[in-house]
Amino acid sequence: MILRDIAHVRTGDKGDISQIAVFAYRPEDYPRLLASVTPQAVAQHFGGLGGRPIVRYELPDLHAVNLVLEGALLGGVTRSLALDAHGKTLGAQLLDLPISPE
């Protein structure tokens, strides 16, 4: 199973920070989302992404986590040399993060 089977995402940017919000479709999958989408697992998944340690905010009422990836945008939208300077494609790349079936 991959994250895409239980969750949806939206990616935003602020300066040199990428932000990925991850939402469980079903409330009962929220514990699994919490267990799978850890800062360590996300950092390992994005092996080609630099930046500082990832911060995760938990939102139990929304069955969501908000991941904040500082320094992930190669200097930020305004000066980045990246093809996707906003990092808008990152969330979709997170969706194939492997998760445990139960």
Binding site: V9, R10, G12, Q19, A21, F23, Y25, Y57, L62, N66
Partner: peptide, 16 residues
């Protein structure tokens, strides 16, 4: 609910 949730956290760092 799904479209609103996504926009609720869009470009938010600390939701609190």
């Amino acid at each position: 609910v799904a479209t609103c949730k996504e926009q609720l956290l869009y470009e938010i760092l600390d939701p609190g």
